[in-house]
Structure formats: C-alpha cells, structure tokens
Simulated assay, not measured.
Amino acid sequence: MNSTTEDAFDLRPLLRGSGQTIGVFIALICLIVFGLLRYENFGGAYNIASFLNYNAMFILISIGMCLVIITGGIDLSVGSVAAFSSVCAAYLSPYGLQVALPAGILAGMAFGALNAFIILVLRVPPFIATLATLLGAKGGSLVLSGAETIAVDWGSNFTKLGMEKAFDLVPWSILIVLIVAIIAWIILERTSLGRTLLAVGGGEEASSLMGLEVGRAKAFAYMFSGGCAGLAGVFLASGFGAGQPLEGVGWELSAIASVVVGGTLLTGGLGSVTATVIGALLLGLVFNILNFENGRGTISLSAYWQQVIRGSFLFLVILLQMRVARQRTTKGLAPEKAEQSHASG
C-alpha cells in the first residue's frame, strides 16, 4: 500500500478537525446564544468570571486526562490527587504562593510518577493502577488533614491565585489554564513527543517496533495529568480558602466526560486538546444554564443531578463513538475485501 492510500485511510485529521469536534463547538455556541437571549445577567462580567474561575479546575484535569486517554490509558486518581494537593497547599500557605503553588503541583506529579511506575514497571493495567492511587490519595489526604478542612493563611499572598485578577483584567486561574492549554496543544500538535503519544494510542506494540520511546511518552502523560490535578488542587485551596480532603469525588468522571465529548477516542490514538477544552466548557455551560433555570423557578434540580447529566452525556457520546468506529472499520475493510475478491478471481 503506497503512502497516498495510507493518507486516505488516516482517520486522525478527520476526527480531530471535523465531525464530532465541530459538532461540540457548534453546540457550545448555540448554548451561549441561548443563554444570552434568555437570561438577563448571563453575559455579565460576574457570571462569566465566576463560570470560568470555577470550571478552571475541571478544564485543567480534563487537559491532563486528554493526554493520558490519547495513549490508550486512563487516570482515575485525578480527583483524589487534587484533594490531596489542596491539603498540601493549604498547610504551606503561610509560606506564600511561591512555596504552596509548586508544592501542590509537585505533589500531583509525584502521584503521576507513581501511576507511571505501577503501569510501566509493575505491568498493572491503568484502570487498576489508578484506582489504587485514587484510594491512596484519598486516604492520604484524610490522614494528613485529620479528615477536616485546613484553613489557608489569609495573611499571605496565597489566596490571590484563586480570588484576584491578573493585571486587573482576568482571574489568575483563567490565565494559568490558558497557558497550560497552549503548552499541552504545542506538545501534542508540534513536537515529536506529541506524535509519539498519538502513535502509542494507535498501537503500542507497533510503536515499540518503530523504535519510539513508548515508556517515556506514557510516563510523561501520567505525570502531566498528575501535575494538572495538583494545580487544580492549588486552585481549590486558594479559591475556597481551605484545603478540602473530601473534595474531588467524581472529578475523574467529569474529566473523562469532557475528553470524550470533545471527540477523543477512549481507545486512544485520536484526540485534541482544543476539543477537550471545548467539551469541558460545554458541560460546565449546561450546568450554568440549569442554575439560571433554577433561579427562574422553571425547574428545580439539585446539584446531584449534575452527575446524572454527566453520565448521560458520557453514555451517549460513547455510543456515538462506537457507531462511528464500526462504520469506519467497515469502510476500511471494504477495499481489502474487494482486492482479495479480485485476486481470487
């Protein structure tokens, strides 16, 4: 098969640049227009800042999760790691943001390195490995905090990260998330490491035979995911004024839902950081609109319905992915069958 034929069957550009990804973007725009037309304060500065500031944590862990899922893995520990990092950052907040911020990120990266070690060295499946670290991080945060919230030091500059604006324009959390998203995009789209991550998800054994650094790429993905979770934990402590060991429950599902809604395949090999961010914003915007509807008295849904909605989104999108994958597999096999039939004739 020549290179032209191989390019014709390369599904990567199709999924990452159109189809579901474009559909999610259009859905996001439609929701924004709907909200602006229906609610008086929907486009106000306070609602926009609050929405982006709160969802910054979920966007962060979704970006990290995207790189992991692209390799064909999964990271179930991100929510518990964020909670653990929030406790670490709260304890170190008296020393200022310059100490608490890197400490929280390093705590998250340490769990990411542990995940990579268990998966790559001990050969434990990612689902089991990250489930174990989920429990370990959750238990560690409860032990470290005594199962209580840890108040931050309000006399230091630690709370500026979650409560103040950069250059009096945008919240610091939003600016930092934008920087992280750009870095992740550059890594995935413009570096050999990004191409390796995609190749590993497309076929780990084939990638190894090609001489690619499979282990290094997967280790990077898990450490990057852990670092994003750690940074989300710092945002949590700084924005809410306390390290919260009981937070983070279900965050991994939110991240997975955002990644999958954005068009990344759970089987790996295809995905986009930009689409993941759009998916996270779409899910967050759905809940923002529901809050406005609750305020109008149109409906009355508790916060617990958020999990039901996330689960429904995830289920429907997975069904869609399975259908698309079957169709493309059938189309990909059709030329081979025709060639075989011609050869036998």
Score class of each variant (00 low, 15 high):
residue 71 T to Y: 08
residue 66 C to Q: 08
residue 67 L to M: 09
residue 76 L to V: 04
residue 65 M to W: 12
residue 69 I to M: 07
residue 83 A to H: 08
residue 79 G to Q: 11
residue 74 I to Q: 02
residue 76 L to H: 10
residue 55 N to E: 06
residue 62 S to A: 13
residue 77 S to D: 13
residue 56 A to Q: 05
residue 69 I to C: 08
residue 67 L to V: 14
residue 76 L to W: 09
residue 89 A to D: 07
residue 73 G to D: 01
residue 84 F to V: 00
residue 79 G to E: 06
residue 88 C to F: 11
residue 79 G to N: 08
residue 75 D to E: 14
residue 59 I to S: 04
residue 69 I to K: 07
residue 83 A to M: 02
residue 89 A to E: 09
residue 65 M to Q: 13
residue 68 V to M: 03
residue 91 Y to K: 15
residue 82 A to L: 12
residue 57 M to V: 08
residue 73 G to A: 00
residue 84 F to Y: 08
residue 65 M to Y: 15
residue 58 F to G: 08
residue 77 S to C: 14
residue 74 I to R: 05
residue 64 G to T: 11
residue 88 C to W: 12
residue 89 A to C: 06
residue 59 I to Q: 05
residue 69 I to N: 12
residue 73 G to R: 05
residue 64 G to V: 07
residue 57 M to P: 13
residue 83 A to Y: 06
residue 63 I to Y: 09
residue 79 G to M: 03
residue 72 G to Y: 06
residue 72 G to E: 02
residue 73 G to E: 01
residue 75 D to K: 09
residue 65 M to K: 11
residue 57 M to R: 11
residue 70 I to N: 04
residue 80 S to I: 00
residue 86 S to Y: 02
residue 87 V to C: 05
residue 57 M to L: 10
residue 59 I to A: 02
residue 86 S to T: 00
residue 87 V to I: 06
residue 56 A to R: 09
residue 80 S to W: 05
residue 71 T to Q: 03
residue 59 I to T: 12
residue 91 Y to C: 03
residue 80 S to L: 01
residue 56 A to C: 03
residue 88 C to P: 12
residue 72 G to W: 14
residue 88 C to Y: 09
residue 68 V to H: 07
residue 88 C to K: 15
residue 68 V to R: 09
residue 60 L to F: 13
residue 71 T to V: 01
residue 81 V to G: 15
residue 64 G to Y: 12
residue 87 V to Q: 05
residue 76 L to D: 09
residue 79 G to W: 10
residue 61 I to K: 12
residue 58 F to E: 10
residue 88 C to R: 10
residue 86 S to Q: 01
residue 74 I to V: 09
residue 67 L to Y: 07
residue 70 I to K: 03
residue 69 I to H: 15
residue 83 A to R: 09
residue 55 N to Q: 10
residue 88 C to N: 15
residue 68 V to L: 02
residue 83 A to G: 03
residue 76 L to A: 04
residue 55 N to D: 08
residue 66 C to A: 13
residue 85 S to L: 00
residue 85 S to Q: 00
residue 57 M to H: 14
residue 91 Y to T: 14
residue 60 L to I: 07
residue 56 A to K: 08
residue 63 I to W: 08
residue 72 G to R: 15
residue 88 C to V: 12
residue 86 S to N: 01
residue 84 F to E: 00
residue 57 M to S: 06
residue 90 A to F: 11
residue 55 N to C: 01
residue 77 S to K: 15
residue 68 V to T: 04
residue 59 I to V: 07
